[in-house]
């Protein structure tokens, strides 16, 4: 049985079609990422799955329970770490954990030892009895994750787990999540707008764009599916059409144009093809500002399937 089964979710907020037929399945023990820009529908999907909101159409089941009809069964089976931390800032880390455990039906020694264990597991034991208001961003995020885990859920939802963390804390968090997935034998669904994050953490991922899943697979398969290397050619002037004709002529058919001046082509063997490409452009009198060659990355996968580059705007920075 799948830990998460989503079928044809649609949801509209006023004029915005937030979800436009989202379907996917996550197997038990998998780490699955929804990757996409802000507003693509990742968080809305998660909010439907954790029973915070309802979809207009479609069905979803988590840990075998329908998210609409068996809400409390779903809530007991899941841990949810929201994008915005929901901790009580005026309580201590331990108090937050104890309350979360109590509303999940835990009590007594079991709860106390579970809280101790988790504080240790996420590395904030030393700060356990300090008021959360004085925690750093990274510590708060660790507490968030501990809160999501207190009742030993089978499925953990991490909505943008590292947004707002500095790069160092982000890398530490990746290691943490990978470790937890094994230590707690969890199914994890995470959303992210960081390509590296999906690449690092997810066994499988889906790219979400405008309320739809555009492609799904393992990071390796998605990259392999592109076949060949990406050649980025940046032109100094706007001779785009001419340059594209030249590129077709040498067997480097342009795939995309970025910002009206950089052409991306895909070729079987970049190293061998590059000299031919440069001399052909040179021969046609087209000035080139820069040329770069790269092995397929998730960036390219994203570009290929959504038709646009993963810009810093998408990252919400």
């Amino acid at each position: 049985m799948d830990a998460i089964a989503v079928d044809g979710l649609r949801k509209r907020y006023g004029e915005v079609q937030a979800l436009d037929g989202v379907s996917f399945a996550v197997g038990e023990g998998e780490v699955f990422a929804l990757l996409g820009p802000n507003g693509a529908g990742k968080s809305t999907t998660v909010r439907v799955l954790v029973t915070l909101t309802h979809a207009d159409e479609g069905t979803a089941a988590v840990a075998g329970h329908d998210v609409r009809r068996e809400q409390n069964a779903v809530r007991r089976a899941i841990g949810y770490v929201p994008q915005d931390s929901g901790v009580d800032q005026y309580g201590t880390g331990r108090e937050n954990l104890m309350l979360q455990g109590r509303v999940q039906g835990m009590s007594g020694r079991d709860l106390r030892s579970r809280a101790d264990h988790l504080l240790d597991l996420v590395g904030i034991s030393d700060a356990a009895d300090r008021i959360v208001k004085n925690y750093s961003g990274g510590m708060r995020r660790r507490l968030d994750i501990a809160l999501g885990l207190v009742h030993r859920p089978r499925v953990l939802f991490l909505d943008e787990p590292t947004t707002g963390l500095d790069p160092e804390a982000r890398v530490a968090m990746w290691a943490e999540v990978s470790r937890l997935a094994v230590a707690e034998s969890l199914t994890i669904l995470l959303t992210t707008h960081y390509l590296e994050e999906a690449d690092q953490l997810a066994g499988r991922l889906a790219i979400v764009s405008r309320g739809k899943i555009v492609v799904e697979g393992t990071p390796a398969d998605l990259k392999a599916g592109l076949r060949g290397d990406a050649v980025h050619i940046e032109l100094t002037n706007g001779a785009l059409d001419e340059a594209q004709r030249v590129l077709v002529g040498v067997g480097a058919k342009p795939e995309q144009v970025i910002d009206g001046r950089t052409i991306v082509s895909r070729v079987e063997n970049g190293g061998r093809a590059l000299p031919g490409i440069i001399s052909a452009l040179d021969g046609a009198g087209i000035p080139v500002a820069s040329v770069s060659l790269s092995r397929p990355s998730l960036d390219d996968v994203y570009l290929h399937f959504t038709g646009r580059e993963f810009s810093s705007e998408d990252r919400g920075e």
């Binding site: 029973t51 915070l52 809530r75 949810y80 929201p82 929901g86 901790v87 009580d88 509303v103």
Partner: peptide
């Protein structure tokens, strides 16, 4: 504002 309520709403509270 601090999303404390939302966190509780995703539990059987």
């Amino acid at each position: 504002d601090h999303k404390v309520i939302e966190r509780f709403l995703a539990t059987p509270a």
